[in-house]
Design a binder for these strands. Sequence first.
DNA 1: GTCTATACAAGGATAGAC
DNA 2: GTCTATCCTTGTATAGAC
Lengths: 201, 201
Amino acid sequence: MTQSTEQQIDGRQRITDEAAHLFLTNGYAQTSLRDIAAAVGIKAGSIYYHFDSKDDLLLAILRQGLDVMIDAFEATAQATAHAEPQDRVAAHVRSHLAALFEHGPYTATHVTAFHTAPDEVRTAIVPDRDDYEAMWTELLMELQNDGHIRRRVDIGLSRLVLFGAMNSAVEWFHPERGNLDRLATTIADQFWRGVRKEPST
Amino acid sequence: MTQSTEQQIDGRQRITDEAAHLFLTNGYAQTSLRDIAAAVGIKAGSIYYHFDSKDDLLLAILRQGLDVMIDAFEATAQATAHAEPQDRVAAHVRSHLAALFEHGPYTATHVTAFHTAPDEVRTAIVPDRDDYEAMWTELLMELQNDGHIRRRVDIGLSRLVLFGAMNSAVEWFHPERGNLDRLATTIADQFWRGVRKEPST
DNA sequence: GTCTATACAAGGATAGAC
DNA sequence: GTCTATCCTTGTATAGAC
């Protein structure tokens, strides 16, 4: 909390900001430390004052991305604890997507870079990911136990499918061109009630 | 169709087989021509007899992957032309997933490598991709026009979400450990009717 | 159709000055 | 905290022999 500590954090932050942006647009492997340094306005060697390696830099970004998502989930959980099941799900979908598109490139990079990340990085971040996934699983199982989701639905599988639907949006959705609420509604609706027109009574 | 031509095709095929496998497991950027050559049992330089560049090799694989998917769609369309709407959708989901997991690593590589592929490669393959996507759009719009999908559903958006759900499976589903039919049913069901338990009358 | 040998560029990482 | 300079490895690609 001293001034020097704060400056060090800022130094790291400037680097992760640019790196996350570049990782997201060009990919981790395709982005060199020289590229990142140039974007920050420093030289490649200087990065090693703040990070041990390129992998270490990536890990820091993945961690921050996940933190944003976890915080978003918890805030939404509190805000909608007593809402209708359908609305709770919709709110969480909305908040996951908002984390993906409105909180800088950290979360989105987490989604795109995780699978191609070096083994050590992936292993290091997995426990945190599990935490986040467990939050969703808990929510959905609660809804199922309360009779709002069909008994036959495999929550584990359904959650993965829902994540696929949400996370794939980072590859084609552009918040400045599209409507995030509309996207969230589409995904939540599709998950909850499907697209079919129910036979009218 | 001469013998020498056939042999040339086989030579290419041996390389694309191994390359697709390596691209899928390790990523395009992380796979070197030396890696591929070693897997085939030749030397890196020899690859250039068959392909102009590494990008050219990737493009050949992406093309093959897409061809499999298009063929699968057409076969399914013919087989289920007169089936119930719900069953038609389920059959196409099943066939898309089957293409992803049962026809070698070509299709799966298409899904994972497309977004990080070099611009030239992506541009070259886009028209073919559009063809495939148009097939799905047509199917879904037909169902909507016939009153089987709610009018308010945006087919373009819903199709993207469905693709995200299906394609994301390449990142976590393992056909030897999991049940493909079960996965297909989950995705198709989730898309068509959602997970909610409908209020009983 | 494949080999050897090699050119050439680019990237991660380190050492020491400032 | 950043710079310069540099080492070392790896990767794509080419040339010419076999």
